[in-house]
Nucleic acid binder design. Structure first.
Lengths: 203, 203
DNA sequence: TTTAAAAATTGACTACGGTCAATTATAAAA
DNA sequence: TTTTATAATTGACCGTAGTCAATTTTTAAA
């Protein structure tokens, strides 16, 4: 039978994640180097990889925790009654997701997009996000011809697309919120706007 | 003033891309190593980086060319009259995009998602894809309350989401086509299905 | 031709993620 | 306590992307 986890193990792991968080605060996620993490944690390089499968796994944990803290705040809100309400709720999280190009890449790799045998922290947050939003939409003032869960998945697809386009030099003239607002209005309130209005907006 | 491009330059570049294509045929995109490329091309490592900014830039070019060949075939088709028509047109490309986890990652990094100062080949294909699909939708049997261009962007968002979910262990029970069909029906033909039907499909 | 500037190529070198056989620390059994 | 099995740690080592000062080749002007 398996032995209990040693105190030493927990301590080492905590030292590693603490060091990582410290480095991220100083240099950003992109600036994190494993060699610097183990140096600050006072352990050998191999120890890191005994605790985390690879660098991405550490990022998955740290970024996943950050996303979770945004979801905590999102969950406290009452269901949005308008697209603007919805955007108010979601934008802080989306802004974190796009705080660094590298962070967005990590999230994309792990969100559903992850070749996850076991589901990781970021993938969990995506499921949680879906659940929260689906519950909001279950009896809101939005379209009801498709399931709330499908609507929630669509919101994620459009959120990701909006962030992706915002990273692109030729497309980042439109603010994230504006772009996403246009998508979500078309997705959640079909028929509420004329084609002409949209042509004007995108021109 | 700038001198003309030397023949030597074109030859070296061709040898590099030929070698790369050969390796990809043998080992897949993921299996490509720059050292193997320069070895087969008969040049030094530094030469590679004089021709391509980095490995990703080579992948951008090769994968972009592949996507373009799919778009060539897509462009020949007459505008789809049904969601199934549309899926028939798009699926071969989407299957290529998901042929390897690595390929999908490269595409995500470069498609709009790319921090592109100058727009790269893959980003170009996304713009081209949008243009083709938008033209199809301009006077098709689909919703007309939003602009064809916005509809085309939505199709891309849902395509990416469908592929991403298909890579995920817990979500890949549903075939890509089925999942995308559900999204596109809700996106392009709002009101055509009951919420009950969708709940049943996703359960 | 000769020469000088520009372009292309070279390969030793660095950075950094990740591996693994050997070592040390811990906890349960004798 | 001593012994023994298991868990945790170590650091030299590897693979591979990417760099750059030095060298060679090309082109065009003198």
């Amino acid at each position: 039978m398996a032995r209990a986890v040693q105190q030493r193990t927990l301590k080492t792991r905590a030292r590693l994640t603490d060091a990582a968080r410290q480095i991220i605060a100083e240099c950003g996620y992109e600036g994190l180097r494993i060699e610097e993490v183990v140096k600050r944690a006072g352990v050998a390089k191999g120890t890191f990889f005994a605790h985390f499968h690879d660098k991405d796994a550490l990022m998955d944990i740290l970024i996943g925790a950050e996303i979770d803290s945004y979801l905590d705040r999102i969950e406290l809100r009452s269901p949005p009654r308008t697209i603007d309400d919805l955007l108010d709720a979601l934008l802080p999280l989306l802004e974190f997701m796009s705080c660094e190009r590298y962070v967005f890449d990590v999230i994309l790799r792990h969100s559903g997009a992850a070749a996850c045998d076991a589901i990781g922290p970021i993938a969990e947050t995506f499921a949680r996000h879906d659940a929260v939003v689906a519950e909001w939409l279950a009896d809101g003032p939005f379209r009801s011809d498709v399931s709330p869960d499908l609507l929630a998945q669509g919101i994620q697809a459009f959120s990701v697309q909006s962030i992706a386009l915002n990273f692109c030099a030729i497309n980042n003239t439109v603010p994230l919120r504006t772009r996403l607002s246009e998508y979500l209005t078309a997705w959640l309130l079909p028929g509420s706007q004329s084609a002409a209005a949209h042509s004007a907006a995108s021109a």
